[in-house]
């Protein structure tokens, strides 16, 4: 991996971290009902999925830290049951910022020797569940995405998948290696037929590929195809499985299909240009994203069209 390649990812990540400094006072939480027992919270940062039932509350992602009290108020408007689990789809600050505060407002079912050994310290916090790579990224000294210890995952998994039953529902977490980062998971509520994707799928921008965090365009495409594989539409490609993206609106499979097509087509164009010997400057000048820029592109901000094209180019030319 070249220094320029790494620097590109770090610049984008710095932009994301800088967003934490913005003023959140005026941001309101919008609650969107997805199913009777599943809601999406929209505020500043990631979408938040709230799953409620008799066992308690499970929250997927927690936005930026300053949004925590507003998130908690929105959760409390949906359920007075304890928050049992916080699940992180990956390690970026707009997804894990509220971990510490929101987990502290919840509680774990603890007893027996565990309770005797560590008492309320275990009982008075919700578990934070994530892929092992999220814990590594958040806890490793000198990491690009520092987080206080209270925000670190307390339950992690190494392999491709982790399952749990909560509120009478199978909750399945699928690891998508080397996609947006190296710690992405999809969270599938199997009975409710709702899939929270994290940032491997967004409806707002080109996919942000965090190179320094282990991301790669081919992993993004693999993740999008996995979402399509999980989702089952109702009649004529509408409805059925509902999808909560990392950012943007609730969708069904169709929007993921169009998004998958777009990322694949752009990847293939840039690959062809590379094969024909074009330099990165020539590729950018050829505008391989021109037909999608008015919808997904940006000339400013933390993730511009130029950064996306450069990242895909460097992904495809990097030595493995």
């Amino acid at each position: 991996m070249t220094r320029a390649y790494l620097a590109l990812g770090l610049v984008a990540l710095a932009g994301l971290a800088a967003a934490q400094q913005q003023n959140f006072d005026s941001v309101q939480i919008e609650t969107v009902q997805v199913r009777p027992n599943i809601h999406m919270l929209v505020g500043a940062g990631s979408n938040v999925t709230v799953h409620t039932g008799e066992d308690g509350v499970l929250v997927v992602d927690t936005q930026f830290a300053p949004m925590s009290d507003k998130i908690l108020a929105a959760v409390r408007a949906l359920s007075d049951k304890p928050i049992r689990f916080v699940v992180n789809t990956h390690m970026h600050p707009d997804h894990i910022g509220g971990n510490e505060r929101i987990a502290s407002a919840g509680g774990t079912r603890a007893g027996g020797n565990v309770f005797g050994d560590i008492g309320n310290a275990a009982r008075n916090r919700a578990e934070i569940v994530a892929h092992e790579n999220v814990l590594k990224r958040l806890s490793f000294p000198g990491t690009a995405t520092p987080a206080p210890q209270g925000a670190w995952p307390t339950v992690t998994f190494f392999g491709d998948q982790r399952d749990m039953l909560f509120n009478g529902e199978a909750v399945q977490m699928f690891h998508q290696p080397a996609a947006h980062t190296d710690g992405d998971i999809l969270v599938f509520f199997r009975r409710s037929d709702v899939l929270s994707t994290g940032d491997v799928f967004v409806t707002t921008t080109y996919p942000y590929i965090d190179v320094a965090g282990g991301g790669h365009v081919n992993g993004i495409i693999a993740a999008l195809n996995r979402i399509i594989g999980i989702a089952v539409p109702s009649n004529v490609e509408e409805g059925g499985t509902l999808i909560i993206p990392g950012h943007g609106r609730v969708t069904d499979e169709w929007e993921v299909v169009e998004y998958r097509d777009m990322v694949t087509i752009i990847r293939d164009r840039i690959q062809t240009m590379i094969t024909r010997g074009m330099t990165i400057e020539q590729v950018k000048a050829a505008r391989p994203t021109i037909d999608y820029d008015a919808r997904f592109g940006a000339d400013s901000g933390f993730w511009t069209t130029t950064m996306f094209v450069e990242t895909v180019y460097r992904n495809l030319t990097a030595k493995s």
């Binding site: 081919n218 495409i221 195809n225 399509i228 998958r260 097509d261 694949t264 050829a286 391989p288």
Partner: peptide, 12 residues
């Protein structure tokens, strides 16, 4: 091939 390798489209 799977869609990961092939979404039918013409090069610009």
């Amino acid at each position: 091939p799977s869609e990961a390798q092939d979404v039918p489209a013409y090069f610009p």
